[in-house]
């Protein structure tokens, strides 16, 4: 039985197809690690993207985002499966 190891770094995962491109997460991010993608998603919005580094796990983007499932934030030390 392998011992569960927590995430070493916080991270944010964006479900691009649920993003409506309002940019509120990008505005709110204190680390400035979110950006607007150049391409369009299935609904015709430019979804938000994560640069892949630098997320502090503060959750500002999660609580600014109006979509229930578009953003998931994993904090440092999270143990378990990816939920989204």
């Amino acid at each position: 039985m392998s011992k569960a190891v927590g995430l070493e770094k916080a991270k944010v995962v964006i479900r691009e197809d649920e993003c409506k491109g309002c940019n509120l997460c990008i505005e709110a991010c204190p680390e400035d690690v979110l950006f607007e993608q150049k391409y369009l998603n299935r609904m015709g919005y430019h979804p938000a993207g994560y640069v892949g580094e630098g997320c502090s796990g503060c959750g500002y983007c999660f609580y600014q985002c109006p979509e229930p499932g578009a953003i998931t934030v994993y904090k440092k030390g999270y143990v378990g499966e990816e939920v989204a």
């Binding site: 479900r15 409506k20 109006p66 499932g69 934030v73 904090k75 030390g77 378990g80």
Partner: peptide
């Protein structure tokens, strides 16, 4: 340790066919 879609939301929003994972609210 994780902030994600609450369990008190339905997995699928059966309002319309099409995008059943997003709300009908504007951006």
């Amino acid at each position: 340790k994780v902030l994600t879609k609450a369990a008190s939301f339905y997995d699928v929003y059966e309002r319309k066919s099409g995008a059943q994972d997003v709300t009908h609210y504007c951006p």
